[in-house]
Design a protein around this nucleic acid. Structure first.
Length: 212
DNA sequence: CACCGGATTGGCT
DNA sequence: GCCAATCCGGTGT
């Protein structure tokens, strides 16, 4: 353990307009929750950048500003949590200045702390290392709900991010196309998904064949 | 107000 | 590999 382990990531960190840098840099940082006094921590090992307005894969494509996407237009540092397929919550890190709808999806985490609770939440017999594999499982394991939409990640309340160990695997990051956004056409080809190479908690998405 | 489909997952065939 | 689960946002009438 190193001295920065429990240090919270400050608000200023999220103001960086370079979302691709941030999506990389978030790898190795620690997602933390505290619901009902139950603390959970997990290392971020996989992210995806969603870069509105030009990115067709983003909910805020062409600056589409609605009740749902409003959170993404906030100043960097809050959480954008939305419901997918009517079943799964997904958590994003909103970044950049106000009115720039940049968001980074957390696609996988490695459980660090209170793993028993995570297992109970996910209701599975899977290995510990897989409890936070996939964006739906990230929220399930950590107890994150759409009601946490807009939470400030720079305040240690219910949902925040800590710096974690300082020797991130920067030279060990793989960039690949994002998952599940075939409708985004050429934007789906961009290598805006980042993960720690060979990390066992990284999601293994279905490869879907598509024409559209 | 009806319809379409989704930044997914896990169970069953 | 196939598919159901389950809700609601966005769009168009």
């Amino acid at each position: 353990l190193r001295k920065h382990d429990h240090e919270i990531v400050p608000k200023s960190y999220y103001q960086n307009p370079d979302i691709l840098f941030l999506a990389n840099d978030l790898l190795g940082k620690v997602l933390c929750t505290n619901f009902n006094g139950e603390l959970c921590k997990a290392k971020i090992v996989e992210t995806e950048a969603y870069k509105a307005p030009e990115d067709k894969g983003s909910h805020a494509f062409q600056n589409l500003r609605t009740k749902r996407t409003e959170t993404m237009f906030q100043e960097g540092g809050c959480a954008y949590v939305y419901l997918c397929y009517g079943i799964h919550s997904m958590v994003n890190v909103v970044s950049g200045p106000k009115d720039v709808a940049h968001a980074i999806l957390i696609r996988a985490v490695e459980p660090l702390c209170n793993i028993d609770l995570m297992r109970k939440r996910v209701k599975t017999k899977k290995k510990d290392i897989l409890l936070g594999s996939g964006p739906g499982n990230v929220c399930k394991a950590m107890g994150i709900h759409t009601s946490n939409n807009g939470a400030f990640l720079f305040e240690k309340e219910k949902l925040w991010i800590e710096k974690g160990e300082e020797t991130p695997e920067k030279s060990n990051v793989v960039a690949s196309p994002r998952v599940g956004i075939a409708y985004a056409k050429e934007w789906a080809q961009k290598n805006w998904r980042f993960y720690i190479k060979n990390h066992p908690s990284v999601s293994k998405p279905l490869i879907v064949n598509y024409e559209k």
